[in-house]
Structure formats: C-alpha cells, structure tokens
Computed example of a mutant assay.
Amino acid sequence: MTDPALTLVMVPPLSDETRTWPGRLTEAVPRIDVVCPEGSADIASALTGADAAYGTLTPELLRSAGRLRWLQAPQAGPPPGFYHPDLVRHPVQVTNMRDTYTDHVAAHTMALVLALARQLPRYVRDQAHAVWEPDWSDGAVVPLGEARALIVGTGAVGAETGRLLAAFGTRVEGVDPRVTTAPPGFERVLPPDHLDRALEQADIVVLTVPHTPHTEGLMDARRLRLMKDGACLVNVGRGPTVRLDDLVGALETGRLRGVALDVMEREPLPPDHPLWRHPGALITPHVAGAGPHAAERRFEVLVENARRFAAGQPLLNVVDKTQWF
C-alpha cells in the first residue's frame, strides 16, 4: 500500500519566475500534490487540508491551516511581519532560502568596500562635473593589506566576504551568535557581547546580519560613536539593523570615512533623504543579490525540502522562529 499524497499550497501571488514551479515540483516529487489557489477564499480553503505551504501566511490564513507542518519562506530574510506572533507559536516548521545568493552578495559587498577604500564615490561625483582633482595624500585610500575588518554575521555571506577580504591581506574578525569556529580567512569569531570592543578596532565594518528582534537598531548612535575614526561601514544584511538618522549624524561629524548601504531602514529611501546627496555615502537599491541563477537556486531548495518532507527526513535551512532566522 502506497503512502497517501501530501498537499503543498503555493500561496499567491506567484511571480513570473515562480509560475512554472508547481508543475516542475509535482514532476520532481510525485508524492507532493501542488495546489495553486487564486482568490483569498480559495487560499483559505486550500490551506485547510494542506500539509505544507510556500509563501507568506498572515495570521488569518494560518488559522485555516490546521494540518500545516512545513512552511517554506520565499526569501532568505523575509520582510518584517512574516514571523508574526501566531506563526512563532504555531508548531509548523519554517525553512528559508538562505545561501542561495552568497556569491552575488559577497561580490557586491566587495565592490562597495573597494569603492569606499579607493574614494570612488568622490571620483564619480567629480566625473559628473568634469572635475579633475586627484588625491595623492597618504589618507586618500584605505590600504586593505594593512586594514582590520569586522564582519558582523558570519553565516554564508559573511564567511565568503571575509575570505575575499583576507585575499587582499586584510585582517578579518567576525561576530556571530552561532558560529564559533573561524571560517577560512578569519582570525577569530567572537560572540555578540564582544561587538562593542571589536568596533573600536576595525577599519571596515561589514554587516550581513538578518533583521531579528536582537539586531533591530544594532548600529545606533552609541555604537556608531564606538567605531574607529576614519572607519567605513557597509550594510548588505537588512536595513532595520542601522538607524539612518543616527548614521547621518555620524557622517556629519566627519568621524566615518564613508558608508555604503544596499539596504535601508526605509525602502525605497525617500528622495529627500540626506544620504542620497551626502558625499560620504554610497547607495545601491537593495540589489546585492542580483545575478544569474537566483530563481533556479531557490527552486532547488524548495524541491530538496519537498523531497525530504515527503520522506520524513530533516529539512534544510530550518529557522528558529523566535529569532527569525
């Protein structure tokens, strides 16, 4: 006697890149019946008998999902509100899409670091006005071979960023609540209670941490004051980890050499925000993960977890719901 099929609901809306996933998932994992509801009433009805789901579940939808045992989040770090209190209390196991953009984000991070280290934001502004003013002073660049970098968050992206920085001769340390063994290129990884002291020593601080109850507002006015004079701050993790008003204040004092942000506390960054025009700021619009194969990598995570779920095996990328990652 064969085991009964399991039902997975693809919660709309589906993007153009995910519209082919239901058919491909059914073909790859025959024991999974994939349901694609459309209207809100259809979603609630489908979730009533669902064993698993892909997407975002509001508290109202979650109440319909009495049998739900697995929820696949569509992103590595879902937006605020995804891990609402009802979901945290629910026994459903949540998995995310971490480690699907590692190479892209690490490469973008290095681009931001190098841009700040070599004064590229200033020279790009000069180019826009046809200004030729080379800076040959000793302080014109951050010599990476003599610099210390602090990677706050040494998961997949942080570890790869540290490895790349080490290749330039940079001394790399990390801070992480879970990782205790130093990844390749790192001198050591410290627990979070060492962050304040580590900030005082770093020439380059890179944030790759997710948005969690503990990282919201991590870099506020107090911690920004702890940073070394002339240091650079790069954030490719999540916007709410850096208080933008405090960051503007830190830039106005001239203590920081520069900041490079791919993620903002408010997205999109309002057109009148001073960071757009500040000469010490480099802004990219949340594109660090851009690159080929991202959608296919996410689909591979979904398929592998569907196979494991159907076989009763441990899932990949399981989230601690109380910590949001």
Rank of each mutant, 00 (worst) to 15 (best):
A231P: 00
R255M: 03
L190Q: 13
P192S: 13
A231I: 00
M227R: 01
P192C: 13
H214E: 15
A295T: 10
R178L: 11
A288T: 04
D246N: 10
E187H: 15
P183G: 13
G237E: 11
P210R: 08
A221L: 14
V248G: 05
L226D: 06
P271V: 03
P285H: 07
P271Y: 02
A198N: 13
F299S: 10
P271L: 08
V189E: 10
V259C: 13
R225G: 09
P271F: 04
G291A: 10
A281H: 05
G289T: 03
H194Y: 12
T180Q: 15
R222Y: 01
R222N: 00
A290V: 09
A294S: 06
D246H: 07
T212K: 11
R243K: 06
L275P: 00
R257G: 04
G239M: 11
R171P: 07
V172N: 02
L199H: 06
R297L: 08
R222D: 05
E200T: 15
E187W: 13
V189I: 03
P184M: 13
G289N: 09
V189P: 05
G291S: 08
G230N: 05
D246M: 07
P184F: 10
V242P: 02
E200Y: 15
Q201P: 10
H194R: 15
D203R: 02
F299W: 13
L269N: 02
M264H: 14
H286V: 03
T170D: 06
L282Q: 03
P191L: 00
V236E: 12
V179N: 08
N235Q: 12
A250W: 07
A288P: 08
L226V: 02
R188A: 12
V205N: 04
P274M: 00
V242A: 04
A281S: 02
H214Q: 15
E187N: 10
L190I: 07
P270Q: 01
T208M: 05
L251S: 10
V259A: 15
H211M: 14
D262T: 02
T212F: 04
A288F: 08
R266F: 07
P177W: 15
A202G: 01
